[in-house]
Amino acid sequence: MAGQFINLLASILLLLAFAMLSQRRIKLLVSLFMIQGLTLFTNTIVIASTTGQAHLYYSALLTLSLKVVILPWILFRMIRQLNVEWDVETLINIPSTMLAGIAIVIVSFNLALPISHLAGTITRGTIGIAMACVLLSLLMMITRSKAISQVIGFLSMENGLFFAATSTTYGMPMVVELGVALDVLVGVLILGVFFFQIREKFESLDLKHLEKKEE
């Protein structure tokens, strides 16, 4: 029962990764990121209650506060101040990005196969999905040109990694998770400062305006 619920949540995560890949409005992108965090939180809670791993409750709380409350709040505030709430990004060729995404999912399932065989966790079926989420976020960072979308891609990659950690090993040791969370938070704050500086200098947040440096 719990196993099926976990699988359901994992497939929602995969769907969300695809939704983020094709979402063109920045504000909705942040909302998607928030839903992703929420799914991750529910998933962690379910795993924690079925396996009785006490420390997973803490990391679920960490996920809830950081990825559902603090980070989306910072991001929403930032896009309001930058006045890009309803900006629409021109994405080239969504269908082919989707196809590339599907290819990535197949590759990651193959790559995860030997790992899931060895894993003894009830979540071993989801390791492939976790790997796919990481690589899909990477694809999203490559295809986007707006600074904020790249950062959201980065954050959702971190979500994917967190998901991978919970499904392979029921989470990393607490001290490591705290450190990772701290790094992510500081990183987003620094990037926030960056957005304003970039916009001041380039009058846009579109990174296409950065001239390409020759090698």
Partner: peptide, 26 residues
């Protein structure tokens, strides 16, 4: 700013791969 952005994004992505490696070792 451009250099710092490139540095952050590339190293951020790179180091995320390293985190995955660390998870696998764990």
């Amino acid at each position: 700013l451009e250099a710092a952005w490139k540095y952050f994004i590339l190293c951020g992505v790179g180091i995320a791969q390293a985190l995955f490696g660390t998870i696998l070792i764990y």
